[in-house]
Nucleic acid binder design. Structure first.
Lengths: 136, 136
DNA sequence: ATTTCTGCAAACGATTTGCAAGTAA
DNA sequence: TTACTTGCAAATCGTTTGCAGAAAT
């Protein structure tokens, strides 16, 4: 792994990156904290936040700009679409590639750098839970 | 204006709605607070937050699920695309209608209810400011 | 009259930060 | 050996909430 100048490869940083790469979910910072505490019980939540930001700057992971109070992190830094459960907040990858035709659109003078296209709905688990509720 | 049962039309609620309808920007709660304090100097920020949520429930406005620390509010409740400036956070409407073909896509078992499609980039003002910086 | 609503202030949850001690390079 | 990092705790930021008085129905 090549590091930017002045950045060090600490045990904490390595464990956080491996935890995120080893999972297909899109955990929040405190979920990452719980994951890495198994191997680094003394790590602090502040360190997790700091390293998640640094790994984003390094382009190894991404912070998702998706609804919900807590930010979520994705071990895959390549832009792609997600679905978010409006009940539990769970985020999953989606096999969908939007076809964007930007010609002759009014962008109010903005220099457009990219886009985010995300779906929302109810995840399988919450569908079951909601169905169960309506039976009672 | 028809109100849901148990909801009252207070002066504060009316002024907040008119402020948001009368503007093409997408202000944050505290920007709305500043706007309405001109006519209601004693209004509290808590009241602004409460009424913005209620106006959302009533379907008269919408809360934008767009990046940035603060939520933004839109006097137009109809779903539509936005551009967001990554420098200053400003949000503008975009004349763009995505063509979504959802057939045979993998949504991980989610019941999909909708989507949000937003662009990001640099607004005209921040382009000028950044150009100015690079000249110095 | 009865409920909803308001202003105020305190509480809250997520994230950031200052600092002294620890550690990678 | 020196600059970056850590753990800890306090601070900050945006938003929510409890409550007693005020206002809409």
């Amino acid at each position: 792994m090549k590091l930017p100048k002045g950045k060090r490869l600490t045990k904490q940083r390595k464990v956080i990156l491996e935890a995120l790469k080893g999972v297909k979910t899109h955990p929040t910072a405190d979920e990452v904290y719980d994951m890495v505490r198994k191997s680094l019980p003394k790590i602090s939540l502040g360190t997790v936040y700091r390293n998640l930001d640094i790994l984003c700057e390094m382009g190894l992971i991404q912070k998702l700009d998706i609804a919900g109070r807590q930010k979520r992190f994705d071990g895959n830094p390549k832009p792609h679409c997600h679905v978010r459960c409006i009940e539990c907040g769970r985020v999953c990858d989606v096999d969908y590639e939007p076809s964007i035709e930007l010609k002759s659109k009014n962008f109010s003078g903005f220099k457009v750098l990219g886009y985010s296209f995300d779906f929302f709905g109810i995840c399988p688990e919450c569908q079951l839970a909601l169905d169960g509720d309506s039976d009672m």
